[in-house]
Design a protein around this nucleic acid. Structure first.
Length: 592
RNA sequence: GCGCCGGUGGUCUAGUGGUAGGACAUGAGCUUCCCAAGCUCAUAGCCCGGGUUCAAUUCCCGGCCGGCGCACCA
């Protein structure tokens, strides 16, 4: 198949999928009755169920199985949070439009690329405009002068007001992560001040994208599933052994930069040994994520991990890999795996009143000698008046720096803005050297962040599940969804409209629902049409009650499998148990 | 945000300066003993605003929305 043909086929798949999604209740543009609004999508009944199942699978793997804790924080947080996180500045793009060719460019980039300014982003807008005029900067595309063009600020965060008036601005979070970081002081208490520990959150995040694109792949409101794993960088190590044999497709930065670079098939263990994945924590989570993606239905032949190029890394990330899936011949980002070091917690520690540190107890308490002063204020006060406080500070500093200064009868000190030295009798300083026991120190934990985009994953799962084939000469469309995530697990039909058949079918529906399965009942049209209907939404199994069911002594029904359309006759008695076992992955249909 | 193209029942689409036709889907009924069959009937549509015109779904302008390209995506 030629490149072009393949891409055309892929486009058709995407179009058909979007059409199916609208028609069958997977997802569709929201507020359609009011003309629609860009970048916002609603998940319909099928889509919401699929998404919920994917989230449950994520929760099970990344919270429950990993022993992490899940929280649920607000989507709106006050301005200071984002001052600390860097989103208020860093998320603020300055755009300047070329008067000639009409192209928009990042004004700060234009300035940085052509002047000595290194951090133009931090400059106020009027100043950027001035710099552009002074240096007679030109449009990178066509070379026309940009002097005099207005620079416009565009912040990707949605702003709102908390309470009445506009004195208390708030923002819709641009990533769920901040909700975890901000609550760290309380979460660390909950974790009993022990590293390492992990906190997960599944929730919405918001970015006022300049141009949302490609249905639910890039929207303005989306769902993230994030894990923030807090570690002691000196002590904690991931359980690499448990994932070292996981085979992955890697696309490292070095390969992306080289002309004939390509993807590597390699195990996690080898990739770490060869230094391809520099950070062991990142390697560990790549190893955890890969089989998980496979289990929810991502086609592993259209999946890879790509390392960020140095230029595209976020301000905090030391090393970063993305999980990517191929859609329409393009690679889209499904997840980011970043080692964020202590960036976030340090910032919040600095900006807030709380401590974002963990007290790390030493194996053995350390005993240190410490020189301290305890000045006699009844002497220093009258002697130095208002400068007494400064004198105390100076004495404290001096004691730490130079004990020998206290060996004589008097101590000589210099105050900052005075040239003359002052002499203070040593006995008035309260100088002493004491042994002090130090049990540990406060450290800022480092954080490893696997961050998953749920909507894109749902899209990928649907796209990779889309199938067309022929059954008895008739075309068929079906979704080969994994039973674990399929929105509806089983359809139950009476073969025909017949009160006796319907009664049995109703009972079966109740039984299956009692067993915790997602069931749909359908008695309209002929049986083939009902099978096709379920195929199209990806229901893995259909149960049909026929006359044999009610005529024979042993009550049996046919169970039809979606992908093969094979049917087997099973006793109604064990039906719920059998199907539940299949859903749990403990039993295969073909082995029945 | 810029440029190009587009917007007709739930979905896909035909067509027109005098307000629309099909296919599929959906509902009711008939038929039907396992894969989108057949028959009858029914429900349902010209994105929004302004302009031109006796008359606009159609032509013009603007907006909204979508696709693609550019830019953006911490």
């Amino acid at each position: 198949m030629s490149e072009q043909t393949r891409s055309e086929t892929a486009e058709q798949t995407s179009e058909k999928l979007v059409e199916l999604a609208k028609r069958r209740g997977y997802f569709f543009q929201s507020s359609g009755a009011y003309g629609g609004v860009g970048g916002f999508y609603s998940f319909g009944p099928q889509g919401a169920a699929l998404k919920g199942n994917v989230e449950d699978a994520w929760r099970d793997r990344f919270a429950v199985q990993e022993g992490n804790m899940e929280i649920d924080a607000p989507t709106i947080m006050p301005e200071p949070v984002f001052e600390a996180s860097g989103h208020l500045d860093g998320f603020d793009d300055m755009l300047v439009e070329c008067p000639d060719c009409g192209e928009s460019h990042r004004a700060d980039h234009v300035v940085e690329d052509n002047t000595d300014y290194e951090d133009a982003e931090s400059l106020p807008i009027p100043e950027v405009e001035e710099v552009i005029a002074e240096h007679e900067l030109v449009c990178p595309s066509c070379g026309a002068g940009l002097a005099g063009q207005a620079v416009e600020a565009f912040n990707l965060m949605f702003e709102t007001n908390i309470g009445p008036g506009d004195s208390d601005p708030g923002y819709l979070r641009p990533e769920t992560a901040q909700g975890i970081f901000v609550e760290f002081p309380r979460l660390k208490e909950y974790a009993r001040n022990q590293l390492p520990f992990g906190v997960t959150q599944i929730g919405r995040a918001y970015r006022n994208e300049i141009s949302p694109r490609r249905s639910i792949i890039r929207t303005r409101e989306f769902t993230q599933a994030e894990l923030e794993y807090f570690v002691d960088p000196e002590e904690d190590e991931p359980d690499l052994e448990s994932v070292e044999d996981v085979e992955v497709t890697l696309y490292p930065a070095s390969e992306q930069n080289s002309e004939d670079g390509g993807e590597l098939e390699i195990t996690i263990g080898e990739a770490v040994d060869e230094g391809i994945i520099a950070n062991e924590w990142v390697a560990y989570y790549l190893g955890v994520a890969k089989p998980w993606y496979g289990a929810v239905g991502v086609d592993m032949d259209r999946f890879r991990f790509r390392q960020h190029l140095s230029g595209e890394r976020a301000h905090y990330a030391a090393d970063c890999w993305d999980a990517e899936s191929e859609i329409d011949g393009n690679w889209i980002e499904l997840a980011g795996f970043a080692y964020r070091s202590d960036y976030d917690l340090s910032k919040h520690d600095e900006y807030s009143d709380d401590r974002f540190t963990i007290f790390k107890q030493y194996d053995e308490p350390k005993t240190v000698e410490r020189a301290t002063v305890d000045p006699d204020m009844s002497y220093l006060g009258p002697e130095f008046g208002g400068a007494a406080g400064d004198v105390v500070d100076e004495l404290e500093t001096l004691a730490e720096r130079d004990r020998s200064a206290f060996e004589g009868d008097v101590v000589e000190i210099e105050l900052e803005d005075e040239s003359e030295t002052h002499e203070i009798p040593v006995e008035k300083t309260g100088f002493s050297v004491d042994e002090e026991t130090i049990a540990g120190e406060h450290i800022v934990p480092h954080v490893v962040e696997p961050s998953f985009g749920v909507d894109r994953l749902v899209y990928t799962v649907l796209h990779h599940a889309y199938r067309e084939d022929e059954v008895d000469g008739e075309e068929r469309t079906y979704l080969e969804l994994e039973p674990e995530v399929a929105p509806t697990f089983v359809g139950v039909f009476p073969l025909q409209n017949d009160d006796d058949l319907e009664a049995v079918a109703d009972d079966i529906v109740d039984d299956l629902r009692d067993a915790g399965l997602s069931v749909t009942y359908d008695d309209s049209g002929n049986i083939g049409r009902r099978y096709r209907r379920q195929d199209e939404v990806g229901t893995p199994f259909c149960v049909t009650v026929d006359y044999e069911t009610i005529e024979n002594e042993e009550t049996t029904v046919t169970v039809r499998e979606r992908d093969t359309t094979d049917q087997k006759r099973l006793p109604v008695e064990d039906l719920a148990e059998t199907l539940a076992a299949i859903r749990e992955g403990n039993l295969e249909f073909e082995d029945l």
